[in-house]
Design a protein around this nucleic acid. Structure first.
Lengths: 223, 223
DNA sequence: AATAATTTGTAACATTTGTTACAAATGCAA
DNA sequence: TTGCATTTGTAACAAATGTTACAAATTATT
């Protein structure tokens, strides 16, 4: 178990001996789960820290309209619903179920809090996790508040460019995947891309995208 | 100063003596600022904890399209960019400027971390703040991923209802304000509301909204 | 009360995106 | 290669929302 936890964002930087020692003091529980099992429902109170040790979990954001329920998969050794353990409400945001057999590490909120107090490296790690989530969501909101498909494409490509630094991007995604990411239909995305090609802003052939006119791409987002 | 901090979410639960004692150990700085002054730009690294003591700050989310740049105002004794002090990047998300003369309390990230370690009540408070932000953003994303104006109206009203518990809601907002909140144009919102009135789902007169058919309202969101 | 400002209703039309369906192109495997 | 699956291009049409402009209703101000 400790070997797995060594790689987790939460316990990063600790040695295996320190981990070993830590869990002599921190009350915890190992729970097995089976494929298909329901672990938590949206709205349940979160009063335990859960870290996935083995297997695969899936959180289903039950999207009201029902049509595009977003699914987030979780692999070890990630923490479940990290940003929902504290806060004014502390309610599970998703329906959590198992995609395979596996194991989780369970620590009550009280013990978890004590652990953070005990070992400030873990506290900082946890703060990095939760803050990171908040920052990710903040970025996502920026993206979602873009109105036209053109804007979304431009934003996405410029973001990819700053990561790679090149004008030729190899998009590892099909247009079908991208359209889901953007929350639009596939033909509409295709149409928009073709328009942008006709306007010589970019060239998009399968998974290779070349930016032809960076200036225009920026103008789409108002510079 | 300590009197102000007593009411802050971060130092909630501490006595004035404890606060007094705390800041004997924690290095800090009080900084005056003047109306109109720029305190931070989007993209600046966040390496200090900033708590507003007096005056008024404003964060401008420079919205790419330029048209609807979102503005968030900050009143004492709130912490500035609380969810951006930790995390993998730690970059300021907004352009921060002063709307009046005032004072801020500045603590370096290092000292701030030490403070959290020193006093676990503050740590828990801070976790509640950051987690609360993440949860707020998560809810906002749910809202933004609603596609039609009907859905947004339904979601908004149902949310208001769970807060008040009544079928008659006094919306303290004009349709103009609401349309901005929803990210749609005012005539479009008006049209949608009128349609819903014709379908006897609700009655909307000025700032008083009565839900006539709760079932239909839920159906709009897929139950 | 009279006037002005704000808010809301309304309509014609443009734009964007969704829907559906099918064809063309490409990649993959037998 | 051949055949099949996946991905992408395309088009006609529907639906939703934006744009613009103005009228009506309401509220605030003098």
């Amino acid at each position: 178990m400790y070997q797995i936890l060594l790689n987790s964002p939460l316990f990063k930087g600790l040695t295996i001996d320190e981990l070993n020692d830590l869990f002599l003091h921190v009350k915890h529980q190992i729970r097995q789960f089976r494929n298909g099992e329901m672990l938590a429902q949206a709205g349940d109170e979160v009063d335990k820290a859960i870290i996935l040790l083995e297997g695969r979990l899936q959180g289903e954001m039950v999207d009201f309209a029902g049509n595009s329920l977003k699914i987030e998969e979780l692999d070890p050794p990630q923490m479940v619903a990290a940003a929902f353990l504290f806060g004014p409400k502390s309610l599970f945001p998703v329906y959590l179920s198992a995609k395979s057999d596996g194991k989780i590490l369970v620590v009550t909120k009280k013990e978890f809090t004590a652990m953070l107090t005990l070992e400030s490296r873990i506290m900082v790690n946890y703060l990095n996790i939760v803050s990171g989530k908040a920052q990710f969501l903040s970025g996502k909101i920026n993206f979602l508040s873009l109105k036209t498909i053109r804007e979304k494409v431009a934003f996405y490509l410029l973001q990819q460019m700053t990561h790679s630094g090149k004008k030729s991007l190899s998009i590892e995604q099909t247009q079908t995947n991208l359209s889901e990411l953007f929350g639009v239909t596939r033909p509409s995305l295709s149409r928009t891309i073709l328009e942008m090609e006709k306007q010589e802003i970019l060239r998009w052939s399968r998974d290779l995208v070349t930016i032809l006119d960076l200036k225009k791409l920026n103008e789409i987002l108002g510079r």
